[in-house]
Each structure stands twice: as structure tokens, then as C-alpha cells.
């Protein structure tokens, strides 16, 4: 009797874990880990003539990455993603701060407003930007009326950044909001009570304590911005190639799967580094909280 008790409990516990974790893990294994492993393995083989790979080991896919032509694309993409992330932070922080200070009823309304664009199809929203920005578009008609236009807005880096910013700003606002909202209001009061002006309180208390939210928001915006290929195509007019476009072209147009895999791997490496940095900073901040 006494011997059968614990094993039964252990089996039950294991079964419980399998039921709760199993479906999610299974899905991720089949559709994320296996494809990822395939992509990794492609990097060391020669390309097949009509796509796919020939199983002959080679290192030339990696040496090709060092070609300035491709490095420029990678760095250019990183630059646009960084600009987008910084602008999202500059716009998102004040917004999140104000929402966090609203009365409870208005908070909900404001948060719904922030995520509302997600209810419309991403492509449709991006096309709307073309209507806004083209030479006969609303912005240029306005500029013309003022005698300032038309200005070339569409098919510029600026248009790409505007599109990325528009698409991912909510992903900056939401984590910032939750970080700021969580701050004990008495900390700001204590700062004022000790003689700090509002600006000093912000720099010395509010901002440092909301840093984990800042980092999360930056990762949330940077990651999809870096890999995006639809917005550069539609709003950049194909003049600016981002690394996402390059990867897609390698697989679908150039049929160079190994090199596409190397590029994908490079993007993944950048993102993993970033996630490590974010986790490290969040742990540091979490220790203090």
C-alpha cells in the first residue's frame, strides 16, 4: 500500500504536465524547431540548380555574407530598424505614461484604441499609407495647397520607417504602459517630497524603474522591423532592399537556399544577442524591484 502511493502520484503529475505542455511543445517542435534545424543544415551545403540543396559541404555561403553588397543590406536594415525603434520609444513613452495616469475607466478605452489597428488587415493598412504618401496623395495635396509641394514622400527610407513605426508602435506602448503602471506612485511622491522637480523625478526615478519595459518594447519593435519585407516593398518601392526582402528573394527568386539560410541565420544571431542583452538587463532591474 505504502509503496504504490508515490509512483501513482508521480505518474499523475507527469501526465498532467504532458496534457498542459504537450500541445504547445508539439506544435513548436514540428513548425519551429524542425524548420529551424533544416535552415541551419542548409547553410553548409551547395545550392541546387532549381532550389533545394546538393549535399556537398562548403563554407562559401558564409564567405559570401562578407561581400559588401550584402553587408550593406544587413547594416542598412539594422539602421532602419534602429531608427524605427528609437522613434517608437520617443513617441510611445509619453503615450504610455499618459495612459498609465488616466482614471481607470479611460485607461481601458485608451488601451483598446492602441490595439484597434490590429483589427484591420496589415496589408490594407499598409496600402492606405501609399494613398496618403503618393505624389497625388492627401499629404502632398495639402503641401501643394500651402505652396510647399509636391515632395517625394513615397518610395523613400522615410516612408519605410513611417510604415514600420505605424505597424509596431502598439508593441512599444503596451509593455511600457504595464511597466509604468506598476510603479508605486508613492515613489514619485517621495521624490517630490525630497525636493525633486517633476523633470528630475522622471530622470531619476520613473525612467530607471521603467527600463525593463523600455527594453521589452524595443525588442518587440526591433525584431519584426528588422525582418519585415512587405513594408519595404510597398512603401520603399523596392528601391531599398532590407534583409527580409533579400532572404525572400534568395529562396523564391534566386533559388539559392543555402545563402538565404545564411542570411536568415545572421538575422537570428542578431536577435538572439539582443534577447540575451534584454534578459540580462531585465534581471538586473528585477533584482532591484
Amino acid at each position: 500500500m505504502t509503496g504504490t502511493g508515490p509512483p501513482v502520484a508521480a505518474v499523475r503529475k507527469a501526465a498532467g504536465r504532458l496534457v498542459t505542455l504537450g500541445p504547445g511543445f508539439g506544435f513548436l517542435t514540428v513548425f519551429l524547431l524542425v524548420p529551424l534545424a533544416l535552415v541551419l543544415s542548409y547553410t553548409v551545403f551547395r545550392r541546387g540548380r532549381f532550389g533545394g540543396v546538393v549535399h556537398e559541404p562548403t563554407g562559401e555561403n558564409f564567405t559570401r555574407l562578407a561581400d559588401p553588397l550584402y553587408l550593406d543590406v544587413v547594416f542598412g536594415s539594422v539602421k532602419l530598424a534602429v531608427i524605427t525603434t528609437l522613434l517608437a520609444l520617443l513617441l510611445g513613452y509619453p503615450t504610455a505614461y499618459m495612459i498609465a495616469k488616466l482614471p481607470a475607466k479611460w485607461k481601458v478605452i485608451a488601451l483598446v484604441a492602441v490595439v484597434l489597428p490590429f483589427w484591420t488587415n496589415f496589408l490594407i493598412r499598409t496600402y492606405a499609407w501609399i494613398v496618403l504618401l503618393n505624389s497625388e496623395g492627401m499629404l502632398n495635396s495639402g503641401l501643394k495647397a500651402l505652396g510647399l509641394g509636391p515632395v517625394e514622400l513615397l518610395y523613400t527610407d522615410g516612408a519605410i520607417v513611417a510604415g514600420l513605426l505605424y505597424a509596431y508602435l502598439p508593441l512599444m506602448i503596451l509593455p511600457l504602459y504595464s511597466a509604468i503602471e506598476r510603479l508605486d506612485p508613492s515613489l514619485r511622491e517621495a521624490s517630490a517630497n525630497l525636493g525633486a522637480r517633476p523633470a528630475r523625478t522622471f530622470w531619476s526615478v520613473t525612467l530607471p524603474l521603467s527600463l525593463p519595459g523600455v527594453l521589452t518594447g524595443c525588442v518587440f519593435v526591433f525584431v519584426p522591423s528588422l525582418g519585415n519585407f512587405v513594408i519595404p516593398e510597398l512603401l520603399g518601392g523596392g528601391r531599398r532592399i532590407m534583409v527580409g526582402n533579400l532572404i525572400r528573394d534568395q529562396f523564391l527568386k534566386a533559388r539559392d537556399w543555402p545563402f538565404g539560410s545564411v542570411l536568415a541565420l545572421a538575422v537570428i544571431a542578431v536577435l538572439v544577442l539582443l534577447l540575451f542583452a534584454q534578459a540580462w538587463a531585465a534581471r538586473r532591474a528585477g533584482r532591484d524591484a
Partner: peptide, 29 residues
């Protein structure tokens, strides 16, 4: 305004700045 009053408050929750050391907290004012 609150930050100019010669009045200091010890908060019920203490409201210590979690990201500063003890001496930094005390030096803040």
C-alpha cells in the same frame, strides 16, 4: 509646491527607491 516645502514625509510603505543603495536613497534629498 511639494518639492519646495520644508516638510518631509516618511511613507507608510517607506517608498525607498529600489534602484538606489541605502546611502544614495538618503543622499537624494
Amino acid at each position: 509646491p511639494p518639492h519646495r516645502r520644508p516638510v518631509n514625509l516618511m511613507f507608510q510603505s517607506y517608498a525607498l527607491f529600489p534602484h538606489m543603495s541605502v546611502e544614495k536613497n538618503v543622499a537624494y534629498g
